[in-house]
Design a protein around this nucleic acid. Sequence first.
DNA 1: CATGAATGAGTCTTCATTCAT
DNA 2: GATGAATGAAGACTCATTCAT
Lengths: 184, 184, 184, 184
Amino acid sequence: MRRKDTKERILEASMKLFSEKGIRETTIKDIAKQVGVTEGAIYRHFASKDEIVLGLFQTYSEDFYRRLISAVRGESSYRERFSETIRAFLSFCFENPSAFKYLSLFHYLRAKDVKSFSPLPKDAILELMDEGIRKGHVKVKQEYALALFVGLLERTFLLVEAGILQKEEVLVEDLASILWKAIS
Amino acid sequence: MRRKDTKERILEASMKLFSEKGIRETTIKDIAKQVGVTEGAIYRHFASKDEIVLGLFQTYSEDFYRRLISAVRGESSYRERFSETIRAFLSFCFENPSAFKYLSLFHYLRAKDVKSFSPLPKDAILELMDEGIRKGHVKVKQEYALALFVGLLERTFLLVEAGILQKEEVLVEDLASILWKAIS
Amino acid sequence: MRRKDTKERILEASMKLFSEKGIRETTIKDIAKQVGVTEGAIYRHFASKDEIVLGLFQTYSEDFYRRLISAVRGESSYRERFSETIRAFLSFCFENPSAFKYLSLFHYLRAKDVKSFSPLPKDAILELMDEGIRKGHVKVKQEYALALFVGLLERTFLLVEAGILQKEEVLVEDLASILWKAIS
Amino acid sequence: MRRKDTKERILEASMKLFSEKGIRETTIKDIAKQVGVTEGAIYRHFASKDEIVLGLFQTYSEDFYRRLISAVRGESSYRERFSETIRAFLSFCFENPSAFKYLSLFHYLRAKDVKSFSPLPKDAILELMDEGIRKGHVKVKQEYALALFVGLLERTFLLVEAGILQKEEVLVEDLASILWKAIS
DNA sequence: CATGAATGAGTCTTCATTCAT
DNA sequence: GATGAATGAAGACTCATTCAT
């Protein structure tokens, strides 16, 4: 069982370590130790450290996008889907804090590489905002709407991570009504 | 020898490179080359790479705070100072894009070290929000107000940096009215 | 990989080079070349150069002490053990000239570090002298007895090393009778 | 006054630092700081660090030799000159502990360079022993006599330096009678 | 004479990657 | 599949020495 998915465990360990200490400051040896194997074993599953770094971004970026887009394209009313998307965003953050932090870090350090991935999570939000503008719900510039949406949720997550806000206190409905007010 | 203050030029070059490529991925050699000296020369001015890293954070973090707090503690009405603070925030970002990016990156990579610096830019924003809550202008939780304020402005800046938004299109008054609506 | 124990060979090469050229003037590269590996390989076996330096002192200091103390605590008469100890001293020197020189050098350069090691070779000699004083064989101050014993033997060894005296000419019994006369 | 003999002060500072920390581990900057000038100033007086290192050995080695040989070639009886030489040896050690330690260290680290200096202090002792053998006072091999003489005095000095023996307790006459007994 | 910034050749150390077992 | 010794290219840092002022 354990042995089965060494590859999976390498990815998990890497993401954890990358998000905690940074990519460059995490060594293959660190990852190997965390997984419980030796350095050489990593190379049986990945051709290079960068393959892990890139693979990780791809995997989690896609996952994040899929969760968001599925909320965005739901069946319910626009306002309900608006809330659902916020919920999906925060679920992802709180279920995988390392992953979310890793995605942010990757944006900072590998801005150029980000461009080769598509679709990105923000594309889901943009789709939601586009629809809102077309339907008249969103009255501010699309870019501001995106900046507000992502900015508020990311910062909220960071405040929780920093211990300034308790996860339990973060209410999707509060955030949804604040954002809704801001953009309409 | 070349020009007056090599030390100043080392700091500038470092900030530029750090914000572009990351701290760890910028070498002393890179910095030296950018400045036009050899590696050894760096060490006449700084005891270690980390002294540059930390010094840079201190310098710009203080500068950013000072600009913000001076807007926050201005003479005019609360609403005017609210706008002024946004203007101060964006001025800092657009005048020193590298510096702003560097500060963000530092938060990601050296979260623990950040705690030893005080006051931090966000303390100025918190002061503004506190006053707003006391005076009844701000009706959402202080943390959300902070998250909204910083989140929107940071994201707006990043969109400009990414070329998605033009700097000329960013109007302080638009952002101020969006934020004002969101928090009241 | 080459032969069985690279670690052992690193220690041997280091001691040889340290005793010939000095510690600081021996580089990791020198050691690696002597062993037939590259610099990086050294660090698989030792965390730092100083770990080699300290480890070497510990190993040979202990070995030297053990040989001496076993002669000091032998079964035979005091006078016989006196000779045996001289023999043990010189055996160590002539079997491991590098080691003996290294121990001396370490005393000169790292006097402070020496204090953290115990027991030291001189403790064996002191034990012998103590017994001699108690039993009335040794009539000079303990410190002079120690200085004479170690001083004569060390200098004799150095004269051999310098080619002034031939190893074959050094007779334990001659030295023993000289020392015996001097201290009684 | 002070400024006059910067050269002299460089030599003194160097010797002190070399004997305390080692030659390689003392930097030109260390020396400059101790003297109260900057690095560049050193090079106005000496062409290189090695010129200091070598010059220092020459100066003190000669001085030591001169003091010893003047005792050896005195007017009094052999036995008196024997004591005088011991007194001269210890005077040198206790007046310039750094110098004596430096001479020893130099022997360890630059054994090959030592050969190019002549006469060396030990030549004075050898002359004394030669005469003793010719006149029948010394009955042991010349090399042993040298080893005993130098070995005892050096070790005695080191015991004082290590705080094991008090300088006041070291009596020339005690040492002289011990040595005399040993070699006759 | 002195300063101190700068050079450049090293020195220790790290680490992604390879490979024989 | 896994191990872990070894490689080799870099990276941070040091320091004797030079030189413009």
